[in-house]
Design a protein around this nucleic acid. Structure first.
Length: 347
DNA sequence: CATCCACCGGAAATGTTGGGAC
DNA sequence: GTCCCAACATTTCCGGTGGATG
């Protein structure tokens, strides 16, 4: 149900792309000029890097939307498409409009894509690229870097974790990547961004200045900010005050976590639950070795078959890439080989 | 200076699944 | 159908790590 004081929910949907990007004017200009250069003199490959909720994905979508329709665009979120095959399948579907089953050989799919992209300008966006590279190495990027008619193909990779693509030098140098860095929003900038959404969505005078100031002082991730405002609006009678906002803080963060974990498995969620439980009980820092038995307990209570410790180790790594947890690695020393884990700070 | 901590993380093995060729 | 193949999630196996401790 849409709260009373929200006139138009659209600016609060995750799919909403604002027409102008407050405080991202420079990055927008850079990206636009790089991509439009591709139309006649060859597409550069671009790597976007910046903190979560700093506008990388949204800005990319808005720039690609403005390309003429003769240019093929594909968007792949590597959270789910974390192997070469799965990503290629998605690319094939977006380029041709036909979907393809799962039982083919990678080389068949590669050949089909090579045939289709040779003559047509194509821009491929690989969002959350770290998840694919971590799981499957640089096979996909290597293939893409070797496609015929490179000047017709633009690759945009997006990462919140690595300012450089974490891949083999050989592949990297043949890709010729132009980095674009998104700085973290300041409190003032977050304030302005949220205010713009509020103006478009809420009834006039329904959000106090103090409410926005409080949120902006706490976070720099716009995605969390939007969850926060939405939750505050649900709780509010007729006006969102600083008090309303404080009341909504916890639930807003929970909603954010739910959204981040949505594309992942039940076991990722159980690992996260085990971690937060332990942190609540035993202080802000825990060891990876404590998490596994707790996770197994949780599986038992929910009637799930638990996965191996080795598997959970990679799931923990993924929670780290999502910036839900932070980990310090020890490779020996008195503590042995282990990770010290805490919840992610500095939102 | 040898030993120990404690699990990281690479590599190979296993089991399941869908597809094409016959 | 049957057979073989590759993709994929997961398990199994195990070598490796370096500061503190005695």
């Amino acid at each position: 149900m849409v709260p009373q004081i929200i006139e138009d929910m659209t600016p609060f949907k995750t799919s909403y792309i604002p027409s102008d990007f407050v405080n991202r004017e420079n990055e927008a200009k850079t990206l636009k000029s790089m991509v439009s250069q591709g139309l006649d003199s060859g597409y550069p490959n671009i790597h976007l890097y910046g903190p979560r909720g700093s506008g990388k994905t949204h800005l990319t979508h808005s720039v690609l939307k403005e390309l003429p329709s003769k240019v093929n665009t594909c968007y792949v979120s590597c959270l789910q498409k974390n192997t070469q095959y799965k990503a290629l399948r998605q690319i094939y579907r977006e380029v041709t409009g036909e979907s393809i089953g799962s039982g083919h050989h990678i080389s068949d799919l590669q050949r089909k894509i090579e045939e289709r992209t040779g003559a047509v300008q194509t821009v491929i966006t690989l969002d959350e690229i770290d998840f694919l590279v971590q799981n499957d190495g640089d096979n996909l990027l290597y293939f893409l870097s070797r496609l015929e008619n490179q000047e017709n193909i633009g690759i945009i990779t997006i990462s919140s974790n690595n300012s450089q693509l974490p891949i083999d030098e050989r592949t990297k140098s043949s890709l010729q990547i132009h980095p674009v860095t998104f700085p973290m929003y300041s409190g003032q900038q977050i304030y302005e961004i949220l205010q713009q959404r509020v103006e478009n969505a809420f009834t006039p005078q329904s959000v106090h200045r103090g409410a926005l100031t409080y949120i902006s002082s706490k976070i720099s991730n716009t995605k969390i900010g939007l969850h926060w405002l939405r939750n505050a609006a649900k709780k509010a009678e007729d006006v969102v005050t600083e008090a309303t906002v404080k009341e909504a803080e916890t639930s807003a963060y929970h909603n954010y976590v739910d959204e981040m974990l949505d594309p992942f498995t039940k076991h990722h969620k159980l690992v996260y639950q085990a971690t937060t439980e332990l942190i609540q009980e035993a202080g802000p820092i825990i060891r990876s070795g404590e998490i596994y038995p707790r996770y197994v307990d949780l599986c038992e209570t929910y009637g799930e078959k638990s996965l191996s410790q080795r598997r959970i180790s990679t799931y923990l790594k993924q929670l780290e890439l999502l910036h839900l947890i932070e980990a310090d690695y020890y490779y020996g020393g008195r503590k042995g080989k282990t990770r010290e884990i805490q919840l992610f700070h500095s939102f």
